[in-house]
Computed example of a mutant assay.
Amino acid sequence: MLAITQKTYGGPEVLETVEVDRPRPGVGEVLIRVAATGVNAADWKLRSGLIGKFGDPPFTLGLDASGVVEELGPDVTRFQPGAEVHGMVLGGYAEYVVVRELALAAKPATLDHVHAAALPTAALTAWQALAELQPGQRVLVHAAAGGVGHLAVQIAKARGAYVVGTARAANHEFLRGLGADELIDYTTTDFATAVRDIDIVLDLVGGDYGSRSLPVLTPSGLLIDAQGNDAETDPRYRRHYVEPSGTDLREITAAVERGELRVEIDQVLPLAEVAKAHQLSESGRVRGKIVLIPWNPPR
């Protein structure tokens, strides 16, 4: 099968197409023929060596996949060959990927594979980060128009929150359409002077957004950091890492089918143009998600 790999850390140019053996599913695993794979900020951070979750190269990136179950490993009970599924994976930039059954959910019937592939990592990040949100609370979402951010806005709104977002002015109308109550153009306004009494800050930017966000929190508020910021010593700080979960993904699917959640697609590109996709992702100017289509996707 074809896959994207890299032999060293570096820029998008280190990504290359190779021929590799098709993997075989082990106990509790399924083999998926990939129809589409999402691009996440973690992808280019892994590629460049900023984070080392995969260890040293060579490795295949890709944390999202939607596709068709091709083969079952021993003890798989929830899916059959031919089932359409999506979920968080390791190595989605390929024609086939092996995934734990427990990380998968049935593809939403209302979505095509492109939109289903855009959901898992981003939606699970927002869903799990906002798990303690209570109706009536005030939530500030940084980078609200991005892949995680635009889903977090909708999830917070569906859970009864008052939602404030930081985003460029060009994205304000889009975010209002998703339910945002208040928007701040971070290019012209310091959010720390524009908002107060926030119960939960979801930081999807990192760096000094941590210390800058602390003054807007209530004394009992939470700063949920999904990127790595500079507020680790504050008692209100909480570092958040997404976990694969078919159970949570099924709940997300139900929210999609109720019309409470939709995923925005910025661009769809061939997997062969993965370097271009990474350049776009690193620019920080993506509205929603970029999705890649492999060479010979299932129809």
Rank of each mutant, 00 (worst) to 15 (best):
I200S: 03
L280H: 07
D248S: 10
T189Y: 12
R159H: 15
R22H: 07
T121S: 07
G165E: 08
T77L: 09
E251F: 08
V242L: 07
Q154V: 09
L31F: 06
D199L: 09
A36F: 04
V139R: 03
H172K: 05
P58G: 11
T188N: 05
D230C: 06
L223N: 05
I4F: 07
L223I: 08
V27Q: 13
H86F: 15
G55I: 09
T8I: 08
R159A: 06
R239P: 00
V30F: 07
D185E: 11
T77F: 08
R285I: 04
H113C: 10
E71R: 02
R250K: 10
F59C: 00
G67R: 08
D185P: 15
G38A: 14
A131C: 12
V286F: 12
E232F: 13
D199V: 12
R238G: 08
Q267H: 14
E182K: 07
G259Q: 04
I198T: 04
E173L: 13
H86L: 11
G91T: 06
V141R: 01
T5N: 10
M1Q: 07
E71W: 00
N229H: 07
E70G: 08
V242R: 03
E13G: 05
G10T: 01
G92A: 14
F79C: 03
H142F: 11
R168S: 15
E257R: 07
L133T: 02
D230A: 14
Q6S: 05
R159P: 05
R24I: 14
A272F: 11
G146N: 02
E95H: 06
S48A: 15
G207A: 13
V76I: 10
D199E: 09
R33Y: 09
V18A: 09
A106L: 15
T188D: 05
E260D: 15
Y209T: 04
K45M: 12
Q128T: 06
V34N: 02
G92M: 13
R22Q: 13
V76N: 08
L202K: 00
L61E: 03
L15Y: 02
A126W: 01
E29F: 04
V27E: 14
P270Q: 15
A145D: 03
V97K: 03
P215M: 00
S213W: 08
A156T: 13
E264N: 09
E282V: 10
L249H: 04
A83W: 03
D230S: 11
G207H: 09
T5L: 13
A122Q: 03
P108H: 03
P108K: 05
G55S: 09
T166A: 12
P215I: 00
T125V: 09
R262F: 13
A143E: 05
P135F: 14
I51G: 04
G165D: 09
G160W: 12
I32Q: 00
G210H: 04
H172D: 12
P23H: 05
V69K: 01
K276N: 14
G52E: 15
